[in-house]
C-alpha cells in the first residue's frame, strides 16, 4: 500500500471513529434524559443512571468498527423502543407547557387597574 493510500485509510478510520464517538455520546445523553423521565423519584434515578452507565462501560474497549456500529444500532433501537411517551420538557421549549404562552403585550397597550372607577361610568 502506498503512503497516500495508507494516509487516506487512516483518515477514513479516524473520521469513522469520531462519528461513532459522537453517536455514542448523543445516545448516552438521550438515554440518560429518558432515564430521568422514567424515574418517578430522584433517588430511583441515581440507581438507574448508574446501571445505564454500566451498560455503556461494559463495551468501552471494543475495537472492531463494525462491532461498534452494530452495538450503537442496537442501543439506538433499544432507546427508541423505550422512549418515554410524555417526557419532561422545560416549560418554554417547544412542546413545553408554557411554549408561546404568556407573550408580552405590544408596547403602548396597558391595563389600567382602577377597580370599578371607569371614566365612562
Amino acid at each position: 500500500m502506498s503512503a497516500a493510500a495508507a494516509a487516506a485509510t487512516t483518515a477514513g478510520y479516524l473520521a469513522r471513529r469520531a462519528a461513532q464517538k459522537q453517536r455514542v455520546r448523543i445516545l448516552y445523553r438521550r438515554a440518560l434524559k429518558d432515564t430521568l423521565n422514567w424515574a418517578v423519584h430522584r433517588h430511583l434515578f441515581y440507581q438507574d443512571a448508574s446501571d445505564l452507565r454500566e451498560r455503556f462501560e461494559v463495551n468501552k474497549n471494543v475495537e472492531s468498527l463494525d462491532a461498534i456500529d452494530r452495538m450503537i444500532a442496537e442501543g439506538e433501537a433499544t432507546y427508541n423502543k423505550w422512549r418515554h411517551p410524555d417526557p419532561y420538557i422545560v416549560p418554554w421549549a417547544p412542546g413545553g407547557s408554557k411554549f408561546t404562552r404568556n407573550p408580552t403585550p405590544p408596547e403602548g397597550i396597558e391595563i389600567i387597574y382602577d377597580y370599578g372607577r371607569e371614566d365612562n361610568d
Partner: peptide, 19 residues
C-alpha cells in the same frame, strides 16, 4: 370588564405598526 380597562393610544399603536 378587561376590555373596558384597556386603553390603546392611537399614536403609539401606529408606531408599533411601523416598528
Amino acid at each position: 370588564a378587561i376590555l373596558r380597562h384597556i386603553k390603546v393610544p392611537v399614536r403609539s399603536q401606529a408606531l408599533a405598526g411601523l416598528r
